[in-house]
Simulated assay, not measured.
Amino acid sequence: MACRGYYTALLPQEASTLVKLTDVDSRLEFLDSLYASADADHRIQSVDKSWDAMHRCLCDGWLDAEHGDETKRACVLGARQLSDRPDWIISYVEPRLAKRVVAAIDGLTRDWFKEQYFSLDRNPPGVGVHRYEMYLVDTEIDFDYTWEYFVQVRDFYQRTVNRDLAIVFQVDQ
């Protein structure tokens, strides 16, 4: 699997349809059917593989939908899960939560993000936890890659909130 993630801002009818679908395959098919029109309307934001480190930076090293601050966690993986399959993540952020996410991530500085990134080899604390697999010594290029995508995601969230739209993050694993 490619593990390349992306966000889609959903128009109200699209969001309603997505959450009413009852199985993952139908949801994935529906999201795929939206891609071209959403992309033409600037409602797609790719994050390549940066989503993993980005989520961990926002959640003290954790890569799940339970740990870390609720609103920061919702930025990537930690919102309403629309997939129960281990090979797909579909995380749905309704418009009110998206506004809270914007407030939570708006003031995060490059210095703060960098501190979080370069502690991923130690976080989350504990024995037997799944830490970031990147070797973090001298990886300024990797940090810059993650930071630049985070800035794009932050801008995407702001534009989406200005339109009062829902957001879905999806990635295959």
Rank of each mutant, 00 (worst) to 15 (best):
R80K: 12
T22V: 14
D48W: 14
L28P: 03
S26M: 10
S83G: 02
L18W: 08
S50C: 04
I44Y: 01
T8L: 15
R56T: 10
L28S: 01
D60T: 03
A74H: 04
L34W: 01
G5P: 07
A38Y: 05
G78D: 08
Y7E: 07
L11M: 06
L28M: 09
A53G: 10
L63H: 08
R73G: 10
R73F: 07
L34M: 00
C59K: 00
G61P: 09
V19L: 05
H42K: 14
K72I: 03
D69L: 12
S16F: 08
C75A: 13
E66I: 06
L34C: 00
E29P: 00
L58I: 01
A74K: 11
P12H: 11
R80H: 13
D25W: 07
L58F: 00
R4D: 12
A38G: 09
L11H: 14
Q45H: 11
E29G: 07
L82M: 03
E29S: 09
H67L: 06
R4W: 11
H67G: 10
Y7R: 00
Y7D: 03
L31Q: 09
S33F: 05
H67F: 08
K72R: 15
D41W: 02
A79N: 13
D25Q: 13
A38V: 03
R27Y: 07
Q81A: 15
P12W: 13
R27V: 05
W51V: 02
Q13H: 09
F30Y: 13
E70D: 15
E14L: 12
L77Q: 02
R43M: 03
W51Y: 06
L77T: 03
L10K: 04
A65C: 12
L63R: 03
D64M: 03
A40E: 06
A74L: 05
C3F: 08
D60R: 02
D23M: 06
G78V: 11
C3N: 14
T22D: 15
A53S: 05
D64V: 00
C57V: 04
D64A: 00
L11R: 13
S37T: 14
D64Y: 02
V76P: 03
H42M: 09
T71P: 05
Q13V: 08
V19G: 09
R27K: 12
R56A: 08
T22A: 09
S50P: 01
S26D: 15
Y6A: 09
S33Q: 02
L21K: 03
L58C: 00
L58H: 01
Q45L: 07
D23K: 10
D48Y: 08
K49Y: 09
L11E: 10
F30I: 00
A38T: 01
V24S: 12
D60N: 01
D60S: 04
W62V: 05
E14R: 02
D25C: 10
W62M: 01
S50R: 02
K49V: 12
V19C: 05
D69C: 08
Y7Q: 04
D48C: 11
P12C: 09
S33Y: 04
L82Q: 01
R56H: 05
W62N: 02
D48M: 07
K49W: 10
V47D: 04
L28Q: 03
S46F: 07
L31W: 03
V76T: 09
S37N: 05
